[in-house]
Simulated assay, not measured.
Amino acid sequence: MHLTDIHCHLLPGVDDGPDTIKGAGRLLDLMKEEGVERIIVTPHFHPEIFETSMERIQRFHGGLREMARRRRIRLYLGCEFYRCPEMIHLLAEGGRPSMAESSYVLVEFAPDDVYQTVRNYIYELRSQGWKPIIAHVERYECCHRDSRRVRELAELGASIQVNASAVLGKRGVRTKSFCKNLIEADLVSFIASDAHDERGRRPNLGKCARYVAKKYGQDYARKIFEENPEKILRDRRRK
């Protein structure tokens, strides 16, 4: 299986990922050990918390891309947008990147956001021609309370992403059960590592892919970890 990680924080010194280029290199080594061949790095954009300049992000992305190339990993640039009123404008003006220059946008919500807030942002992104990916949906209490809401968001045009650690049970039994129900309802489009560091939030995509393949079959695992990410990389936003 050709694994692609679509959500992780490997760029040094731009958010809460690694502090140094050496730390980023060690994360790349762990990614390689996990069998990851392609990565979309997704530094946070969160007003007043993570607003690193695009010049700095692009500079570190260029350096890390060369390090990844030496490990035979292809690296692409994306962004994890925290939902905010500026999001649509930043995307339209190129102030922050979409996922690998595609129409796909990774968007994060607050754990206690009400469902209508989530729904409104998804609707607005879709109305502007973007393809939203809801980051780690297992964190949002409004969806936990009623999983039918996840189906409604998917029917609105959102792709659903869950974290590998949640699928593997590292975030508790309740969260693992929630992810299991979404997978069995065929509502999950992407599983990603959301890796940040070498300890508590380390790369784990290979382990999760093996678990998913064993539990749900090779064809399903290939769809989640290979075919669906390929759709992002083949997509191109019309300028």
Rank of each mutant, 00 (worst) to 15 (best):
G95H: 02
L168R: 10
G13H: 00
D29T: 01
R70M: 11
E227A: 04
P47V: 15
W130D: 02
T42S: 12
I6T: 15
R149C: 06
Y220D: 05
G129T: 02
Y140W: 09
R69D: 13
E226P: 00
Q161P: 06
M67K: 12
C8F: 02
I73W: 03
L205F: 03
I134D: 01
R70Y: 12
H144R: 15
N181T: 13
P12Q: 04
D29W: 04
T175N: 07
P97L: 05
D186C: 06
P85S: 10
M54G: 09
A185K: 13
V150R: 07
M31H: 13
T117H: 10
A195N: 09
D16Y: 02
I6M: 11
Y82A: 07
S103F: 06
G129Y: 07
A110W: 13
I6P: 12
V188F: 10
R149N: 10
E198I: 14
R71S: 04
R71G: 01
D112F: 10
F81L: 07
V118E: 04
R234S: 13
G217Y: 14
R234V: 00
I160Q: 00
H7G: 01
R238E: 10
H46D: 05
F178A: 07
N181C: 01
R210Y: 07
Y115L: 02
L90C: 07
D235W: 01
I134R: 02
V137L: 04
E155H: 10
E66P: 01
A221L: 09
C179F: 10
T52H: 12
R151Q: 13
R139G: 04
D219Q: 08
Y211A: 14
G157R: 09
L106K: 06
I224R: 04
I39F: 13
R59W: 02
V150Y: 10
V173F: 11
D146L: 14
L168G: 14
T175K: 13
D5E: 10
N228K: 12
G62W: 03
E152T: 06
E101L: 04
M54Q: 15
Y220W: 15
Q218K: 15
T175R: 13
G94K: 00
K131A: 02
S177C: 08
R119I: 00
L30T: 13
A221I: 08
V41I: 13
